[in-house]
């Protein structure tokens, strides 16, 4: 029942938001189509800017995966992780997500490519990527931009939050899709 509800909300959400938003905007005399296309145009520049970072990370992670190193780590840590119900394949995701958004996006892509986006591993990795942020990067640019060097408890809060998100993602996905 719970899983049906969660999946139903996921499927209904986007079309409903889309419809309500453009009806509202049209009512407010926004030239909806013109404004929409104006916004959509930015995607090409963004994708072009993202491409080299994605390529660099995908190559590095591709090398690491092909070398068999991640299998070794997975084998060593596998039993411990399995004890907590965590599939060993998502370990690189958990390790990279707080450090680099593009690196973890690369890991996500290769996991989806290998195990399929609709597998439990694929869904768990997707939830990990979507349900948390690149903690270190966010702290570095936000604090860096105003010249703050003493983060106080912000780093610890970030690390505790990341751990919470990973275990929540794993357990929820098992509950809903498992």
């Amino acid at each position: 029942m719970f899983s049906i509800l969660v999946i139903a909300i996921s499927q209904w959400f986007i079309p409903i938001v889309f419809l309500l938003l453009i009806i509202y905007a049209y009512y407010r005399e926004v030239k909806v189509f013109e404004i929409f296309t104006e916004g959509a145009k930015e995607a090409l520049t963004l994708a072009a800017a993202l491409f080299p970072f994605l390529l660099g990370m995908l190559v590095a992670i591709g090398i690491l995966r092909a070398s068999g190193f991640l299998d070794l780590i997975g084998q060593r840590l596998g039993p411990i992780l399995n004890f907590f119900g965590v599939p060993a394949e998502v370990l690189p995701m958990a390790l990279l997500r707080p450090i680099s958004g593009s690196a973890s996006l690369g890991v996500l892509t290769s996991l989806l490519h290998e195990y399929g986006p609709d597998s439990l591993i694929g869904r768990t990795a997707s939830t990990m990527q979507g349900g948390t942020e690149t903690t270190l990067y966010v702290l570095a640019i936000y604090f860096g931009s105003v010249g703050i060097t003493r983060y106080r408890h912000a780093l610890w809060v970030g690390i505790i939050t990341d751990l919470t998100a990973f275990f929540t993602a794993v357990w929820l996905c098992r509950l809903v899709f498992g």
């Binding site: 509800l5 969660v6 999946i7 909300i9 996921s10 499927q11 959400f13 986007i14 996006l105 996500l108 892509t109 989806l112 490519h113 399929g116 986006p117 609709d118 694929g122 869904r123 997707s126 939830t127 990990m128 990527q129 979507g130 349900g131 948390t132 939050t161 990341d162 919470t164 998100a165 929540t168 993602a169 929820l172 996905c173 809903v176 899709f177």
Partner: peptide
């Protein structure tokens, strides 16, 4: 999580948006 949905779609998922519900619960908990 637009980026994740985009990647899932690019990888040929049957239902790229099905993870919205669990992602929302995860991020709310976090």
């Amino acid at each position: 999580p637009t980026m994740v949905i985009a990647v899932r779609a690019a990888q040929g998922s049957q239902d790229p948006t099905e993870i919205i519900g669990v992602t929302l619960l995860t991020t709310l908990t976090a």
